[in-house]
Write a protein that binds this DNA or RNA. Structure first.
Lengths: 360, 360
DNA sequence: GGTTGTTACTAAATCGATTTAATACCTAAT
DNA sequence: ATTAGGTATTAAATCGATTTAGTAACAACC
């Protein structure tokens, strides 16, 4: 059915030793004084019989796998999917493969997956960590494994990491609302103590407080069922009639939030301004188009994989941990148009003028 | 720095042989007459020292990896991402890990990845194949590897596969257009000879021809740069003034197509009806909401992984190949409202009434 | 001619598991 | 008492590579 050809087969077919074949295969012919003639002969034979090394035997011997394990929150989230894609591409071009898997932000599943990666002896770890795995991360680093953390850090984690400037992004967004004349700006965020969420909220808080107002924050729980989450947001907006703008702290919340707004039949931005943290292709095409904070996905992915590749090729010593904070960009669109001018400004749009009606 | 504890360590620490330890570890204590007392003692010791087997040594010996390789077109495509997620979840619960990677529909990259999977000796292959790898797939199957193909097939491929009913989905969509009074319905599709695309076009063609009209088909190339693709669609629509509806053959095209329509400042569905193959969360929230053909993602994912798990646990004989064609659902929304009633029907919406202007 | 040095190549150990074939010991049957 | 059979355990082979520590042959040097 299938034939496996090993290094030993080659050796005996040519009447030489496995050692010689191995040297040639690993490009160590020269330094081990294998004659050029023999080297050519071996290479030709290998080519001819289509030999492929057994990676298990290799890894068993060397302890290296040329595989990088990558843990992200959710592969079906466009932000993570895009990062994964770019990381994979660059790694691939350098001879590394990426094996990725989703943590679903569950510490236990994450611990399991880390264990799998460990026993599979991946060469390095790229992780968007859920809360509560500080200990495991520290262990990895202490054991000398290359680790790069991204999107968020964990309190107390010292090691390579790449994150966006969540504080500044949020602050700028709120400032933009204020500049455009919005007065009562609410934030809807996740009920989570993840660092990136905390930072976004701080940015919001500080920008609001600078105006002398009080923050208005609603927290919803992740992976509540969708309908429930929509209703929650809906009730919150309806219950705070004086709100004239809302800042959604993630893509995921915005999904539900926009549906809530539609259900309430509020017009954006006349009755409610909207800004979302994390951009999304379709936001440009919405009617009206949605203002969003765009994280530097490409740059983040590149930094992450390059940090990792450096670590992997480092000659030995751990060296200093390196941190990058990348700045994000506010994509100004129509959902946050200046308050007073709104009804008169021309806008690009999909769809025609449709009479306003009550929700059913 | 790090200590690796092996089966040999355990054996010598307890003054017994590796064999005994191995038997116990593999649950073969009973059939090899290991005394219950000793078994308990070994298990306790293993627990205590936190022994973890070296999977390379294991795989080197057994040839099994408990890993399934999965190749999809593009991990940043929501359709594939969702499938991957569900497959991963089920596999994980059965003790299998999924390693996935993107083919980008590139036959050469796919061949490379298959080679990697092969040398890593994955236990099975789940593939959404790009064109041109018929030979490699046949080889895999002939060599006795479990293979499940999904989303599309390849001409001549005989083996397990799960696809959606692309023909019926497209046919139903066009029929819906016709029922709602649309008269000149164009299709915009990929310039590709992939089976699923051909089927969608056939569905369109047959539905159109039944009305006595001629098909109007525009093909665009994948991964042309985005702007170019948008302009192409734009020119096509503008150049065929009598078109009153358009059927986008993929999610990806719709992305560009909707932008083209916006640029042309056409109102949906009054001036142009729209249906998209492949649903997308945000389509519901669009103004107007977009009618789409929703593929049975969950069912497809479950069928795929279950077929694979069956193959993996099969006692030996290959058995018959099994094919599933799953039906998709037309999600009727506002972008395909009945022609005559359109201006008068109430609609749910996001955003207010905004004056229509020329594109800049 | 004996020491030293290169060159060209190889035998054997090793990585950490699984598995076959064997070894004692003990009991029951002939 | 000898054989057969079951129980409890283990030595050693094996998977397919890498790598250490040689060996043999030959030239160069004083």
């Amino acid at each position: 059915m299938k034939k496996k050809i090993t290094i030993g087969d080659i050796a005996s077919e040519l009447g030489i030793s496995k050692t010689t074949v191995s040297f040639v295969l690993n490009g160590k012919a020269r330094e081990n004084h294998i004659s050029v003639a023999l080297e050519k002969k071996i290479l030709k034979h290998i080519e001819k019989v289509g030999y492929r090394p057994n990676h298990f035997a290799q890894s068993l011997r060397t302890g290296k796998t040329k595989i990088i394990g990558m843990l992200i929150e959710d592969i079906s989230d466009p932000f993570f999917a895009s990062i994964a894609r770019i990381v994979e591409e660059i790694a691939y071009s350098k001879g590394y493969k990426i094996f990725y898997s989703s943590t679903e932000n569950d510490p236990q599943k994450t611990r399991d997956l880390l264990q799998v990666f460990r026993t599979r002896q991946v060469d390095g770890y790229i992780i968007a960590p859920p809360p509560g795995i500080e200990k495991e991360l520290k262990e990895l680093v202490d054991d000398g494994h290359p680790v790069v953390v991204f999107d968020r850090t964990l309190p107390g984690f010292k090691g390579d990491n790449v994150v966006a400037d969540n504080y500044q992004g949020a602050f700028t967004a709120i400032q933009h609302f204020i500049d455009n004349g919005y007065q009562r700006i609410a934030m809807i965020t996740l009920n989570s103590d993840q660092v990136q969420m905390i930072e976004r909220q701080k940015g919001y808080n500080d920008a609001i407080k600078a105006t002398g107002q009080l923050p208005i924050v609603k927290k919803v729980t992740y992976h509540d069922d969708k309908e429930h989450s929509i209703r929650e947001i809906q009730d919150f907006i309806a219950g705070n009639g004086n709100i004239d703008a809302v800042f959604f702290a993630t893509n995921y919340i915005a999904d539900n939030g926009l549906e809530a707004i539609r259900n309430l039949n509020l017009s954006i931005p006349q009755e409610l301004g909207v800004i979302v943290f994390d951009d999304y292709n379709l936001f440009r095409l919405f009617t009206p188009s949605i203002t969003a904070i765009s994280q530097p996905i490409k740059e983040m992915a590149e930094r992450v994989i390059n940090l990792m590749l450096e670590r992997l090729s480092a000659t030995a010593e751990p060296g200093e941990a390196r941190s990058f904070v990348l700045s994000s960009t506010l994509m100004v669109r129509n959902s946050s148009l200046p308050k007073t001018h709104v009804p008169f400004l021309p806008q690009e749009r999909v769809g025609g003028m449709i009479p306003k009606t009550r929700p059913s």
